[in-house]
């Protein structure tokens, strides 16, 4: 930054303040004398390197993997069920068509043999006898 460089050239960045002699040597002891008593309480510090902290990324990765597996299984299950429903509807239609073709065949045979319902009944009842 051009303006910053101009200020630096003009004023410098050094410390322009000073303190009375021995100020920092005495400061700590003076302050500790003034420091009030506080209840002796143990502080609960959050542990950055605790087990939970270390395991957190692993747990996140595991959760993502589980979600991916779940989605994959769900996707393939859906595909399989769609295929099955397509297959079953196809078989029903095949079965239906085969039944209708059998009826047609019987009708055509009956027409060819010039048999009416009475003849068929007589034929069937004589077979049973």
């Amino acid at each position: 930054m051009k303006e910053e460089e101009i200020i630096k050239k003009r004023c410098g960045t050094g410390n322009v303040f000073r303190v009375p002699d021995g100020y920092f040597d005495d400061f700590a002891s003076n302050l500790m004398e003034k420091l009030p008593e506080r209840e002796n309480r143990t502080i609960q510090l959050s542990n950055h390197y605790g087990v939970a902290h270390i395991l957190k990324p692993i747990l996140y990765a595991a959760a993502c993997l589980c979600l991916a597996i779940f989605c994959t299984v769900l996707y393939f299950n859906k595909n399989v069920s769609t295929n099955q429903s397509q297959n079953s509807s196809a078989s029903v239609s095949v079965q239906g068509s085969s039944e209708s073709s059998r009826d047609e065949l019987i009708d055509r045979t009956a027409d060819y043999a010039m048999m009416d319902n009475h003849d068929i009944y007589a034929c069937v009842s004589s077979d049973q006898d």
Partner: peptide, 9 residues
């Protein structure tokens, strides 16, 4: 306790 010059002030 100020050691700077006028520009620094």
């Amino acid at each position: 306790y100020f050691d700077g010059n006028e520009i620094q002030a």
